[in-house]
Nucleic acid binder design. Structure first.
Lengths: 126, 126
DNA sequence: CGAACCTTACCAAAGCTATGTCAAGGTTTG
DNA sequence: CAAACCTTGACATAGCTTTGGTAAGGTTCG
């Protein structure tokens, strides 16, 4: 048998059972379940848990932040919107005359956010 | 004159002056400064502030999370490490026999994290 | 000079994060 | 069936986020 219960998994990964449940809720490591609902941690999950700890420690990030990164990679709209915001945040190109600052910026933002809000194939007039 | 002081910027963007300073500390919108140190918000900054609010409201994310996204896009090591972790989190391919689970996973993680730890040379010159 | 701005720095409170613990109840197994 | 697990849910707490003040002091301008 190569699947551990939550206490055993906690043992070998250094997390507490409590935290394993928390990490699961965040969506970072979701173990399989036995027919009775017991969490079953296989080698992949155990490895992910160890590496997760290393990641947090090395970069001083929190679980929530990794959770947000997960959300970013799963939710294309969110990812698009965040990227759009950062793109718009980039420096104004030299060739845009000062008078057009506002237009250029507004336009860019509106286009990007609108695109994210209403994906092309769902476009309707209005 | 197309640069507003912090109170004026607060007025037109709906943020409080307090929050504009906070947003600056997080690194999301960093206005220029006058010779005396006064923050000067130009049209681009004002637009970013408005769009930022929209982004937060629409997706229910927090400033810290957008701040983390910023960190992700600026810190190639962090980005690499997070991506490595997610890649390793992907499902084990069918063709890897059960006996090799552990090796496969460990190897993958170690390679990815090592690569991130010892970056080649072309880090983005932020 | 003085009013009305601005700056940084510190105190505060409501809310969330990360973590523990305990309770009520199901599962496994000797 | 009882010990020793497991489950979810709730209460608790130290610390950080978010946001608002307030204080001490510089800047602008009439």
């Amino acid at each position: 048998m190569d699947a551990l219960t939550i206490h055993e998994a906690a043992q070998t990964t250094g997390w507490s059972p409590r935290m394993l449940r928390y990490i699961e809720r965040i969506g970072l490591v979701e173990p399989a379940r036995s027919s009775a609902g017991y969490r079953l941690y296989g080698p992949p999950e155990l490895q992910r848990l160890r590496t997760l700890r290393e990641l947090l420690d090395r970069f001083g990030v929190g679980l929530t932040e990794v959770g947000f990164a997960l959300r970013l990679r799963r939710d294309a709209q969110l990812r698009g919107a965040v990227e759009a915001w950062f793109e718009a945040t980039a420096q104004r190109p030299e060739h845009v005359p000062a008078d057009d600052w506002l237009h250029w910026e507004q336009d860019k933002h509106q286009k990007l956010l609108a695109a994210v809000q209403r994906p092309p194939h769902l476009m309707e007039t209005g």
